[in-house]
Design a protein around this nucleic acid. Structure first.
Lengths: 123, 123
DNA sequence: ATAATAATAGTAATCATTATTATTATTGTT
DNA sequence: AACAATAATAATAATGATTACTATTATTAT
């Protein structure tokens, strides 16, 4: 993988937010620095960064969101404001429970919780 | 909601399979009985059946799959054969754990496990 | 039987994502 | 430093899943 200004900027944009951005959001941010950057370039680079395990993806209602927070964590989505929050939970017990009950070998566990966040409960 | 032959057939097709079918798969099955049925009709009816809590949806890699098995369960996807299997697990402990740690009110918990199924492990 | 209108088939439109392609930029080698 | 090889790019077209539109048909309460 060669170096490119575009990839550098795309990477730093995703790293600089907690909001689990979409490709389109990253594209709009990147254009502030590189007005001629192409949406295809954003998709390709995000894809490469996922490939090289620099970023993770989160699928929210069929749309890919990107996440620079790599440590094992899960997601909570508020159905009122639609924001996605990181939550840290232990899933190993859970995985072991399933592996012992079934004959499946599990190597990924994605948990998506939906509900109402603290802020929206008070509004 | 009025009665329609199309909805009746669509419903029975989803009920008659364990494979978590997509709209397109249901469409192709339905055409065997109603050759002129429209894909839009399939989408609209599947949507209505979800709305009326007759079916559930499972989002697999950005594509909506439908599921007539309503009781609380989760999904395991084999990364080799791509099949999605139902798994029954208790999530209440898990939800309580998160609710006590955070201030979120949780009303849905979707767990998507990825790994290798028994069959594919032996191939 | 009829009137009101929900549902349909057929088709066009939308939206996220991927593919194509000619041009540009990076990098290892003279 | 110039060069050759080729990865990466911008611009654009294509794809695939899903939704919207519309004139016609089917259902249902009266």
């Amino acid at each position: 993988m060669r170096h490119s200004k575009q990839r550098e900027i795309i990477h730093s944009i995703v790293q600089g937010t907690q909001t689990h951005p979409t490709a389109d959001w990253v594209y709009n941010q990147a254009r502030k620095e590189l007005p001629n950057i192409s949406l295809g370039t954003v998709y390709r680079n995000l894809g490469q960064l996922v490939e090289s395990k620099t970023l993770n993806t989160v699928n929210v209602d069929g749309i890919i969101h990107y996440d620079a927070f790599l440590s094992n964590h899960q997601h909570f989505q508020c159905k009122t404001c639609n924001q996605v929050f990181d939550i840290e939970v232990n899933t190993q017990d859970f995985i072991s429970q399933v592996e012992s009950k079934t004959k499946y070998k599990i190597d990924r566990c994605q948990i998506h919780l939906v509900g109402i966040c603290e802020k929206c409960q008070n509004n």
